[in-house]
Structures are given as C-alpha cells and as structure tokens.
Design a protein around this nucleic acid. Sequence first.
DNA 1: GCAATATGGATAGTATCACTAGCCATAAAG
DNA 2: CTTTATGGCTAGTGATACTATCCATATTGC
Lengths: 215, 215
Amino acid sequence: MRIGELSRRSGVSVPTIKFYLREGLLPPGELTSPNQAEYADTHLRRLRLIRALIELAGLPVARVKEVLESLDAGDQALHHRIGAVHRALAPSWPPAESADARAEARVRELIEKRGWMIEPDAPAIGTLAETIAVLQSLGQDDLAADLDSYADAVERLAEREVAAVASRPDADRIAESVVVGTILGERLIAALRLLAQEHISARLLGSASGDSRTE
Amino acid sequence: MRIGELSRRSGVSVPTIKFYLREGLLPPGELTSPNQAEYADTHLRRLRLIRALIELAGLPVARVKEVLESLDAGDQALHHRIGAVHRALAPSWPPAESADARAEARVRELIEKRGWMIEPDAPAIGTLAETIAVLQSLGQDDLAADLDSYADAVERLAEREVAAVASRPDADRIAESVVVGTILGERLIAALRLLAQEHISARLLGSASGDSRTE
DNA sequence: GCAATATGGATAGTATCACTAGCCATAAAG
DNA sequence: CTTTATGGCTAGTGATACTATCCATATTGC
C-alpha cells in the first residue's frame, strides 16, 4: 500500500504520516522507485501504536520515539525488555527529590516487606515516592496509608499480565504487548476504577436524601 | 501571608501565581489596601492542588479551572459531587464513537452483569469503550478479555476509597479528597503496578538465561 | 524619614510542541 | 497526456503554559 491508503486505513492524515516519517517514529516504506514507496501492515500497526501512545497515553513525540526504539532494540531477554520499556515510559523529569526522602524510604520498605525483586533504580520508585509525598503535602494520607491493599490488588493483576505476555508465541510482538499492556492497561484500570467508584458511591451514599453527612 | 511567602512555601514562582490568579484558578487574596492582599492557608493548599493537577495529572489549565469550579460548587450531595468531579476530570474529547459501538456494548454488558449502578452518560464508559476498541485494533485483546479480573480488583479498592472519603469529618475537604484520590490514586496505582510487573517478570522470566523464549 | 525592595495589576512576549502548508520533480491513474 | 498522488523538503501555524516588563503604591530596613 502507498501513503494514501495507509492514511485512509489508519485515520491519520498524509502530512502527519510524513511528519512521523521525518521524526523517525515510523520506519520508511520500501522504495520501488526514487520517489515511490510501499508500506506494509507492520506500518499500519506501528502507526496505530504511535497514535495510542500520543493520544491515549499523552506521551510527547520524542518519548514515543524512545519507546519505539527500545521496542525495536535487539535485546532478547524478555525481562530486560520489560524493564527497558518501563524506563522509556517513565515520566523522565527526575522527581523533585526534595522532601521525598521519607516517602522513598517508605516505598523501599514496602518493596522489601513484600519480597519484591526490583532494580534499585526503577523509575517507578521515584514516581511512587513523589506521589505519596504530594498526597501527604495535601493532607490526604488515607490513600497512602493503605498502600498494602493496592499492592495486593496490583500484584494479582501483574501476575496475569506478565503470564499473558510471556505466553505470546510471536516473539516480534511481545515487546509491543508490553507497551500496549502498560499504557492501555493503565487507562483501562483508571476508567474501570471510576465506574466502580461511582457504583459504590451510589450504593453507600446515593440513596434517598442525597446528603448523608449533614450534622 | 503575602504573595512572596505563598511563593516560597509552595515552590511556585510569583509570576506563575499571578498567572493563576488571572486565570481564576486561585481565588484572589483579601485586599488590605488598594494594592496589598493577604493570602491564607487555603490558598496554599489550593495552589498545591493546582500543581498536582497540572504536573502530576497532566490536566490543561482550562480543565483544572473546571475541576476547581465543580469542587467549589455548593452542590451538597456527596454522590453527585463525586459524579461532577469525575465528569470534570474526564478526557473531554467525546471518544471517536466510530467502531467503538461493539466495545461500548461490551462495557454496558459488564456494568449490567456486575449490577453496577452507573449513570448511562458517565464519561468513563466512553473512555473504557475507546480503550477496549484500541486494544482490539492493535491485536491485543488479552487485557480486554480479562475485564472481570480488573473489575474485581478495582471494585474492592473503590469500596475502601469511597468509605474513606465519606468518613471525613470536614465537609469542606470532601470534594478535594475526591479530586486528589481520583487523580493521585490513579498515579499511585500505575506506579505500583509497574513495580509489581517488574517483580513478577523477574520471578517468572528473569532468572538464569535471561531468555526463556528462544526455541 | 527615606532609600531599597516587594506588591498588585496589567500588557506583551517567549518557548515548546505537534502538527500543517506549500513547493518541487516525478510517478501513477484515467 | 492531462489530472492526481507521491516522496522529500523547508517554513509556518495554533495552542499552551508560562515569563518579562512596567507602573504606581506599600512595606521594610536602617
């Protein structure tokens, strides 16, 4: 297929596809003449992945490029690949590192208590510590107090997710699964959580008066 | 306190605070003379909330304004307040609505099967449907296939969260708790999930060879 | 009492980002 | 054999989140 069809099938405009080609997000098509190229289904899938990363995950183009590069890297070990993808997906600004020290200690304590095997420089540690620190600075430590419940829930999910990814037969797409699963999984969980919250709040508080806390 | 101290205590520059005042994100201080104003601790907390919404949740300033307005609205019923906050936090672009029809049917089916009481126009429905549709267009339906596990996990968490919010004595801060809990909770869950994934992947795949899928 | 600094309020400017427009020579389609 | 599409290029655009600067007035330090 040529660029026009790629555009129609992906819903991305031709100039934007050209832009992604220029930026190196999308590999060039195979040239059939000096100014004619052929694109394959892999281009279509990659393009959809790019759109998901930009639109749904809100990643800046430069970060998308890093993610895709780590995805195409020849590193064979699945575990390391997952680590690389996680690193590429991380927020990048090294977290404030100011008063987060206590929060970070708390995170490392949690990791140790659960016996989690985590590289000490995993970016999620900083993200988590920063989040906890902000929660505390806002006077809302309920959430952070219950870290264990969250860890329980998330550990169960991760078990299924990693198993599902590892069982994929097509080695080529494993890394892609990791990216998609991480990013879209996050969104899926977030949306489901909102729905669950609405349900529970309807059940616990929504019934008659509409205000259960007047006193 | 005056603007200088507010700036020092929040870590936000004076010009940026002025910008937030102009944009109506931060209510004006109390004027003590024609050009002198006094800010209270509520301003400091509000400012930290604004930063969390912009930096951590990545909300655009305009959306932050909406969220804060819904937060300050006098609507008394907690359940409705939660709904309003969820609506203000939603992605705003009405989801593509194209081939998402099947995915949306799937979501409504899930809601019905679990007996969830959800308003039919809840924005999370669209978000979830879109996410599922994208997952399928990327050929990764494992995640979506296991929706029930996610719903289970998330329902348990929501139960605690709503109960925690509802038990807060300070009615003034309940809505703020909803915002903070929704946004920072999401981030907390996401970070924890990455850590759990890394642990599980180390356990299942990381051991010796580093490549369990060579065959 | 008085110079140095800070403040509230305003207008205008900047940096970044994700595209988008336009041009050209050549290729494909009708 | 004309119309449309393509690949490759440079330059421009619109949105967003601040920054910079200015001014008249207040406060602060001495």
